[in-house]
Amino acid sequence: MAAENGEESILNHAETLAAPPTPVDKIFDKCFRTLTFVFTWATVLLLAFIVFRIGGQALPAMKEYGPGLLFSSDWDVNNNQFGIWPQIWGTLYSSLLALVLGGFFGITIAIFLTQDFLPHKLEMVLKNIVELLAAIPSVVYGLWGIYVLIPLLQPTADKLHSSFGWFPLFSTSFSGFGMFSAALVLSIMILPTIAAISQDALRAVPRRTKEAAFGMGATRWEAILRVILPTASGGISGALVLGLGRALGETMALAMLVGNSATVSLSLFSPASTLASLLALNFPEADLNQTGVLMYAACTLLLITLVVNMLGTLIINTTTTKGGER
């Protein structure tokens, strides 16, 4: 041992080097803590400011047009007539369609990735592919939708319309740009979100729950459908709601594919319009009055997404804390 060798060691020195923190240390500490506190407040104020600023700009239009604007379908700039019902309809309809498709694929993939269907390496490859789907910018999806997806859909859609034209979903002829193409691309875009959060939910199912099901003689799919999915249902519904939130706010793919015509129709092949694409297309050349109306539309969109997202977060938070206690 070193100290026994009689070498220079701290043990042979009685003096202490410990010094109280210098004034510089103290001032730095104070400033640094204050700074973090200030930016925490700034985060809150930023959100408040966003809502306040957009709300403030929308207020004159809200006063002038009232809630009637939400349910009117007239949009006539020259006569100052505005209504955003078709856009609200288009937003909700396209998002729900995308949710059905993206939800089905997303949850299926989440099951595929979590329930030991694949060797671990393949699992990672597929997981990365799905995550990369989310990385592609929406404007690129829009471009792809116009030049790849629409030509691809054309023959099938035409056939569906000519054979099943009586059915409301196929009641108009397919013009390419419209609800169907938009919702399809939208579903690809929300699939990764749903798949990722559902995977977390499925992984959180305790192993012993699964083992209990197998122990009672359930087949793999019986265990998945009757035990694992119900146990993870909270997290999965949260995933769906958050996916819906993403779909509601998505702009570019829709602006490029939905056709931007203020139509309210159940038909998948009809062109439509959404709140976000309305904003994207009209903001650049809006006059003051129109800007107010657009801010009103932005407020509506903001409100819808805020409610949906809060709901999703709430569902995930409540179900995951319960899961932790199990």
Binding site: M1, A2, A3, E7, I10
Partner: peptide, 9 residues
């Protein structure tokens, strides 16, 4: 010195 004190030097 400190490492010697900690018998680690």
């Amino acid at each position: 010195k400190a490492l010697r004190g900690g018998a680690l030097w």
